[in-house]
Structures are given as C-alpha cells and as structure tokens.
Write a protein that binds this DNA or RNA. Structure first.
Lengths: 335, 335
DNA sequence: GTGAAAGCGCTAACAT
DNA sequence: ATGTTAGCGCTTTCAC
C-alpha cells in the first residue's frame, strides 16, 4: 500500500514527472492532450499530491492558524464560525491552537512553516507572540482583543463607545447604584470597556466605586462569583454591566440560584451579543457587535497581508449598538 | 530574513547537520556536551524546525483532521472542545474541515498526507469518505454519527436506549398524543432515535402517527418549522420528543413565538444534553450523553489506531440517561 | 558519538 | 510543449 506519487502517474501517462505537476495545476505550457492523459492517469491511480512535498517546495500551505480560547465559551464558536467559513471559501483550512489564557502558549507550531498566517483571538497586554511572529515574517492578525501596540493588523469592536452606550442606557433608565463585572484585566476587552464605562458614568454624575467592581477570567463561573460579590454589598446595585456576555450569563445563573429577580431587582447588561444571547429563553440585553463581520474582517486582513506583506498595519473597528432584550428595567421604586 | 535551518545551527555549534537533528530530539547517541552546545546555538539563532521537511521525511504530522458541522450549532463546540483538549494534551493539533451536510465534502485534504488521522462527526448512511480513507490507509474514527457499516472505529451514544427512555418518560407522565421532530433522515442519530422511540411507544400501547412526525436538517430553524407543523394539527400533541437539543431549542423558540406555554401546554424533550441546555435560562429536559467522554473516546480510538493500524474495529457506545429540567410536565387535564 | 550520503515528493529553473 | 536537473529541510542509514 505504498503511496502513489507523481512518478507513478508520469510513468502511466508516458510523460516526465514535472509534466504531471504542471498538467495537474493547469499551467500554461502543457498541451490539452497531455493534460487529459495525465488527468486520466491520475484519476485511475487515485493520485493525491502530498502536501508536505508541495509545502517544502513552495512554502505555501493554505493553512491558517487560529489561536482560540476554549470552545465551551460560546463566544469563541460565534467568532470562529464566520472565520472558518470565510477561510474555507478562499481555499484555506484552519488549524486550531488552544490557548486558555493561563498556561503560556507554545508558539512553535505557529512558526514551523506549516501556516501561511495566524489569527490571534486571545492576545492581551504584554503578549509576546505577535511581536515574535512579526520578527519571523509570519503574517498575523489580532481579532477581538489587542495588545495595546499599534503596529499590527486588528479587527476589534468599538470597546469604548460600546461601554459608553451601556452607561448612558443604564443612567437613562434611572439607575444610580451601578456595578461592573470585568474580565481578565490584561485584556483590552476588559480594560477599555471598564475605563470607558467608568468615565461615562462620571461624566453623567454617577460613580463606579471599587466595591461595585468585580472581575476575573472570562467564564460563567467568574460571572457568578462577581455577581455574588456585588450583590452581597449593602446597598446592592440595581444594575450591573458585564464586560461580556459570558460574564452576564454567569451573573444570570447566580441570580437565578439566589432567587434575585432579573430584571425586577437587578438589571444585567452584557457585551458582544454572541448568538446564544439572542435565544428567547436567554434574552440578554447587551451591547451588540457584528461578530460575523468582525471575524470575516480578520480573515480578510490576514489574506491581504499574506498577499502583500509590505502593507502598513490596519485597524478595523466595528461599530456597537445597544440591543434591548429582557434583562433590563428601571430600578424598582424605593430600592 | 531567510529562514534559519539546521545547517545554520550546525555551523554555529561546530557539528554536522544530522547531529543537530539528533541532539534536538534527544536521541541516544549524542553526548551531553554536544547536545548542550547544539541547544544553545539553536536558541541563539531562534531555530524552529520546518514542519514540512520533517513530515516529508517521517510521514508524521501530529495533526488530526476533524470534519465538523457548523460551530453555530452549539452541539459541535460541545463535542469538539473535549476532543481538541485531548488532542492538544497528546501533542496533536486539530485541523477543522467544515462540512455542511449539503455540499459534498472534498476529501483531498484528508488524504494529502498532512494528517495522521481523521475524526468524522458528520457521517451518514452512504458516506463515501470513511471507505476511501480506509482504502488509503488513513486512520479514521466516526463520532456521534455512523454510516451503518460495522467496520470502522466509532464512538456514539446509545441512540436506541436513549430514545426508549424518552418514550417511557413521556408515557409515564401520562401523555398520549406524542410527536417527534427528527433530523436528517440519513443520519443514525435521527433514524435510530426515531425507530426506537416509535417502537417503544407502540410497545407501551401508544402510536406515532405520521402527522405527528416532522423533520429536516439539524437546525434551530427546522426545529421551529417542525414545531409549527406539529402544533397546527388538531388535536395538537401534548408532548414532543426531538431528535436532538438543537431541534428542541428551535421548538422552544417557536413555542415562545406562538405563545404556547412550555411545559404548560406542551412538553419538549431533547437529546444530547449539550452544555447550553443546562443553563438555567434554557433548562431543557433532555436525554443526556456524556459528550465530553464521547469526544475523548473518539480521540483515544484514533490515537490507538494510529499506533496500531492492524487492530480490529472497535465500537464505544456511551450510556444515556434522562435529565429532567424545566420543559416537561404531565398533560394538562382535559387536553 | 559523529559525519557523509541518500532520500522523502514536490515545484522551479533551465534546456531543448 | 516537454524533459533534465536541482533543491526545498528534514530524518535515516551507513561508515568510521
């Protein structure tokens, strides 16, 4: 069961081996007749070119690495699906490199020549990987989170404006005791959202005291814990803005667990509008971003960078808007 | 910015190129001293071995293909996450090959030597791919769905027993007009579940008339459509068993849309217990399978097959159980 | 323990 | 339009 090589096809078609290579790729400089004979021979033998041979010689793999958080966080499937579809459509296959934000990411697979480029979804302040990839000439795009440096291609949400929209919305509803549950402090999705949220509250004559701020890694569990902490202070907040939908979902879980009515006793607002949040049974009021667009933009940035490595770095910032669903209300009178 | 090769490292360390290869892989037959010198030189130069060179020579890529449905169907993240984690832990990276059940899957990337093995999550009756991979000696495992043939490694749920558990549960609750929303007819997850469900109902003195059976591809939309069709018949069913949780979620969406109370007017039961279904805001009563275990088992089957290709085919069937949550109730009196 | 030489299967450059 | 030759970077065999 030895592998069928282009030599086998060549022998069968009565041509030389490079002719097989040319014919199957439809390069000009092969007659229609030979092309047909080669194709026939290849089909008969079930010939499939070996990818490693091709990559070794061309340095092109048509694979793109996607460094991603755990898929059990439904944000990632929501972001990845459009990227995968866009890549697939352009003839690229995604290689998933798991990164849990805790263990250091092993960058070797990103630089071993097996990928034409890399999309990072889990960057944060101080990430060494983007710089290292740049130094080695591996095309790289940051999506959703960035490092703070301004020298990479990024596709991100308007984190500051989104957070301000949340602040204005809650204040307009009449809330005064407003809390915040953040994510990992090193991520731009958490720090930018928190800073802009606090700033806008201040501008509107409210404040965000530290006893009403919780945070931790982005997970259901930390959403629960944050909610528990915030709600056990006295007086408790009447509204909570969460740095993303996962945290908001965790907060809702904990609210349900503690029999705190949402939005009766406390309003909860998320950020991202991942697909799950729109289910009627979830119905999370949130700051929306077009995640599909953000993902596709990242793919597009990467593919153009692969094609023209010299281009200056580009930033795509995606607009946000408030999507009111079922988890907000004015504060209960007298609370 | 030419690439650093093992020759560069060799020159710097004052040894021959193969010695570099041996030293970095800690092969016996290299002195500790040389090993140290080589390692130092490699680090200084930032040497990373080129994967295509290595693969060409060893035919081992440490990549595994996962043919998967769209990640926007939350079942797939639930199944993939444990597989990805298990693979990563064993030093393998997953390459995702999207398959939407409609367009024919292009099998070339599965057979171009770039993958040590393949896990198929979207097989169905008549799938040509597993046979083709077998013929070419590419290790392959089916997970969740199978083809019907008995000659491949598979990791699946106890579809028949699970469906019987659902039937017994609904009958015990007192339901008599019971409906079924199936998935793609060609999939074992739909056909086996439907057959066992109908059989068990019959055994218990109920029947499953075709006007109470709907079906289509596995999607939220088809769950909604199925629910709409079933509930517009007169008299309407008081309980519906869905071939999986996505369909059940779709049914719940449509129920909400039509202001049909769940479980007040109609009970809804799913199958799979994907992580999402356990959220309190969803609270779907369902037939559970340990998806994480099913995924890990698939990885384990694949890795042992890669190690010992000669082994006879194995089947791992994962137990199911009923997980009562919030979407079931006895039929309303007089309905 | 280490070096020299060969070979994995492909594409690219150069002849003709 | 096609054949010949070389080379991509690694691992492996065989000498010594």
């Amino acid at each position: 069961m030895a592998r069928v090589t282009s030599f086998d096809v060549a022998r069968r078609a009565g041509v030389s081996q490079p002719t097989v290579s040319r014919a199957l790729r439809d390069l000009r400089g092969t007659s229609a007749a030979t092309r047909a004979r080669v194709r026939a021979a290849a089909r008969e033998l079930g010939y499939v070119p070996l990818q490693s041979g091709r990559v070794l010689s061309t340095r092109l793999s048509r694979r793109v690495g996607i460094v991603t958080g755990e898929l059990s966080n439904p944000f990632y499937p929501g972001l990845l699906e459009p990227m995968i579809a866009a890549l697939h459509q352009r003839g690229y296959l995604p290689v998933l490199i798991p990164d849990d934000d805790l263990d250091a990411l092993n960058p070797e697979p990103l630089m071993d020549g097996s990928l034409d480029g890399v999309i990072l979804t889990t960057a944060h302040r101080g990430s060494a990987v983007p710089g290292e990839l740049a130094r080695r000439g591996v095309p790289c795009v940051l999506v959703n989170r960035e490092t703070g440096e301004r020298n990479a291609d990024v596709s991100v949400a308007a984190n500051d404006e989104g957070a301000r929209q949340a602040a204005r919305f809650l204040v307009r509803l009449g809330h005064t005791r407003i809390g915040f549950i953040g994510g990992l402090a090193e991520t731009t999705t958490s720090s930018l959202r928190e800073a802009a949220f606090a700033g806008e509250l201040r501008r509107l004559g409210r404040d965000l005291p530290s006893r009403l701020v919780a945070g931790g890694p982005y997970s259901l569990g930390h959403g629960r814990a944050g909610f528990a902490r915030l709600m056990s202070g006295r007086p408790a907040p009447t509204a909570i803005f969460c740095a993303n939908d996962i945290l908001a979902l965790g907060a809702m879980e904990e609210a349900c667990h503690r029999r705190v009515a949402v939005p009766g006793e406390v309003s909860i607002i998320g950020f991202d509008d991942m697909p799950l949040s729109a289910l009627t049974s979830v119905g999370l009021t949130t700051i929306s971003v077009d995640l599909a667009e953000m993902g596709r933009a990242a793919v597009h940035l990467l593919l153009t960078r692969i094609a023209r490595p010299g281009l200056p770095a580009r930033r795509e910032v995606h607009a946000t808007w408030l999507t009111p669903r079922g988890t907000h209300a004015p504060p209960r009178p007298g609370s």
